[in-house]
Amino acid sequence: MDSSLHTITTELGLDPRIFHNPAHFIASVREGVSGQVLRRALRQLGSELIFAQALHTDSAGLESYCTDTPLDRRRSEVLLDTIRILDRVRRTWESNELAQQWLHSNVPALGGVKPVEMFDTYEGRRWVTQVAEKVEHGDFS
């Protein structure tokens, strides 16, 4: 298990197996992820704009989700997917600051779009992940 993902899951109060075991991921989504996970993710990962875009809301909406109440399935899945991707990007760039710079830069491999603009759809988040993986493996920057 990747120690970085283990660390982020522990910091966020998630089961460390959640991103490595599809059954755990699905069970967590079905159960509903606590809004406190979102609160901790905002604190740990920053990226309020990304979380707001992914969850199709604004700052006030994000704040309303940051409670002990579990999020619905759709929001739980989007939240977990976004956390996984942001951690992936952070590990790729080996720095939260460099990851944030990349997320807010126009990336040719994304058609010249900023990665932050891609989090509002599943396919956009998947594309960001694919590009981050290619960068990590030296395919392009």
Rank of each mutant, 00 (worst) to 15 (best):
G124F: 02
P70S: 10
V113W: 05
T82P: 04
P70G: 07
G35C: 08
H6D: 10
F140N: 09
L55I: 06
S34V: 02
H56M: 06
T10L: 03
E63Y: 04
A27I: 03
V113L: 14
A99W: 03
I85W: 01
A27N: 15
L98D: 11
D72F: 04
E94N: 10
D81P: 00
A27P: 00
R126M: 10
D120E: 11
V37N: 06
T69L: 14
V116M: 12
V113K: 15
D68I: 01
A23I: 14
V29N: 05
I83E: 01
A23Q: 13
G61V: 12
F140H: 14
S59M: 02
T9F: 02
A27R: 14
V113P: 00
G112W: 09
D68M: 05
R126W: 07
L79D: 01
R84Y: 14
E133C: 04
R126F: 06
Q100H: 06
V116Y: 09
A109L: 12
M1V: 05
H24I: 12
G13I: 07
R43F: 13
L38R: 05
C66K: 14
E136Q: 15
T10A: 04
V131H: 00
C66P: 00
S64A: 14
L98K: 14
E11M: 14
G112K: 09
V89I: 13
D81F: 09
S76I: 03
R90A: 05
A109E: 12
V78F: 02
T121K: 06
D139K: 12
T92H: 07
S4P: 01
S105R: 11
I8W: 01
L103K: 03
T67E: 05
H24R: 14
K134M: 12
Q101L: 12
E77R: 15
E94I: 07
D15I: 03
R30S: 10
V131Y: 01
H20E: 15
D72Y: 03
D120M: 06
G46H: 12
L98S: 10
P16K: 13
V37Q: 07
E97N: 02
V113N: 08
T67G: 02
T69Y: 13
Q130P: 00
H6Q: 12
P108F: 07
V128W: 10
C66Y: 05
R125K: 13
C66M: 14
R91Q: 15
G61Q: 13
V33E: 04
I8K: 02
